[in-house]
Amino acid sequence: MKKSTLFDIISPVMIGPSSSHTAGAVRLGILARNIYKNTPKKVIFKLYNSYAHTGKGHGTEKGLLAGVLGLSVDDRRIKNIFDSDIAKQIEYEFQYADNFKYHPNAVDMTFIGENNMFISGESVGAGEIAIRKINDFNVKLTGKYNTLLIVYKDLPGMISKVSSILQHHNINIASLLCDRNAKGQEASMIISVDGNISPEIVDMVEEISDVYFVSYIEKLEN
């Protein structure tokens, strides 16, 4: 596990009242937005457990929406986001549920637009978050690293094709996580790296045969 730094202790500058229920909610929204890329027509937020029960008192709904709209954790507009003009860009809906299989602070976000996407995440404490599911794939995205998400056909040698491109450009892989629906079916690869990946490199990965979809997800600011 990554250890806390001096900066973690004396920051973030954030809109209150809760690092997990407010700042964490904003960060989940931002990371989901970074994954989805486009501006959605509509987002359905389904809040679970503690998020569902105490969210209102913590501005959790406001935080999630603000994040999806691209506001940062210290943006004063979060407080009145429902009345602001930027919130009129999209439709949104909040649902609430209890499910003990979910983390106490969990949310499902369904993006509806040119393409639809299901993103599920959790706020794990002190503003730290993790996206745990994108569509059918299990993932773990914490927003701490720039990350490449690749959906491809489950075939031998796919990991090495991707990693050799990264190696060729002197990019160090910090972590690698793969998942698949079934043998020979759709699979996913989540590669977190040190530093940046340029659009040219993303294009090269996209051109590998049997790669269906590539998304470069930028890390969250501190």
């Binding site: 202790i9 004396i10 920051s11 973030p12 500058v13 954030m14 809109i15 209150g16 009242p17 809760s18 690092s19 407010t22 700042a23 501005g59 406001k62 210290d74 004063r76 979060i78 407080k79 002190a126 503003g127």
Partner: peptide, 16 residues
């Protein structure tokens, strides 16, 4: 009080 009215604060170490 700034924190609980959704004002801007520094979590140091936490918001509470």
């Amino acid at each position: 009080e700034e924190n609980i009215r959704m004002g801007k604060i520094v979590a140091c170490p936490t918001a509470g």
